[in-house]
């Protein structure tokens, strides 16, 4: 018997419009212990922020909230996960010739974001209203491969979204949101056909073609 608690079925922002009742953590007893240790650690306490300075932390958190549209609690602790990776220099194993290594590129790029904010507004990026932050970020994306504060904008964009998505979509709350069951060893799958579902998977209850909603 698996005990249910307030930890079960959590989704970022607390909404679950598409896979009601789906709960990745209801299956932890089916996971191998090594995998369970790695995945469940993401739900536990995180190290204090060490890589970013307090002002960098505020800018980075605002940027990550924007990139992942995290407006309400509970939030996946993406800033803390990013900070740990950068402290540990757990990079993807490459950097562009015209960008510094990832940690420095993060510091440089969020500094540039703050400069853009101060050029247009009386406060820095972290204290701007949601829509004002979004406009500044959109302007960086719109530059594509043009230069932004001496950096190739598209490469900065790729750095931001790569780290942000890796953190967010590694979290069981995000899997609850998208209907993905997470670890599958030693259990495997038995119904891998179009429309096939395992007993623990939940059907999409509010199908929305993203083309019609974005």
């Amino acid at each position: 018997m698996v005990k249910r608690s307030s930890l079960n079925g959590v989704t970022p922002g607390g909404h679950q419009p598409r896979f009601p009742g789906f709960d990745v953590l209801s299956q932890t007893h089916m996971w191998d212990p090594i995998t369970a240790g790695v995945v469940l650690a993401r739900l536990g306490p995180h190290d204090a922020v060490r890589f970013f300075t307090p002002s960098e932390q505020a800018i980075a958190r605002a940027l990550l909230d924007q990139l992942l549209d995290q407006r309400e609690d509970p939030k996946v602790p993406v800033l803390e996960m990013l900070d740990s990776r950068l402290v540990e220099e757990s990079t993807d194993g490459w950097r562009y010739e015209d960008l510094p290594e990832d940690g420095q590129a993060w510091k440089q790029s969020i500094g540039a974001l703050d400069k853009d904010a101060l050029d247009k507004h009386p406060t820095g990026f972290a204290l701007l209203a949601w829509e004002q932050q979004a406009d500044i970020i959109q302007a960086v994306q719109d530059l594509q491969s043009d230069k932004w504060h001496g950096m190739t904008a598209s490469r900065v964009w790729s750095l931001w979204t790569r780290y942000a998505c890796t953190a967010y979509y590694s979290h069981p709350w995000a899997w609850n949101e998208i209907g993905f069951p997470g670890p599958a060893y030693p259990r495997g799958y038995k119904n891998a056909t179009i429309g096939g579902r395992e007993p623990f998977e939940v059907a999409d209850h509010h199908q929305v073609d993203p083309l019609k909603q974005t």
Binding site: T161, C165, S170, I178, V208, P210, T214
Partner: peptide, 24 residues
Amino acid sequence: PITWAEHVAGQGHWGHDLRVYMRD
């Protein structure tokens, strides 16, 4: 999901759009 999110983000989707695509 992580690799798929890179694909979706590679289309230029971010924020709300990214989350909508990923929920799909």
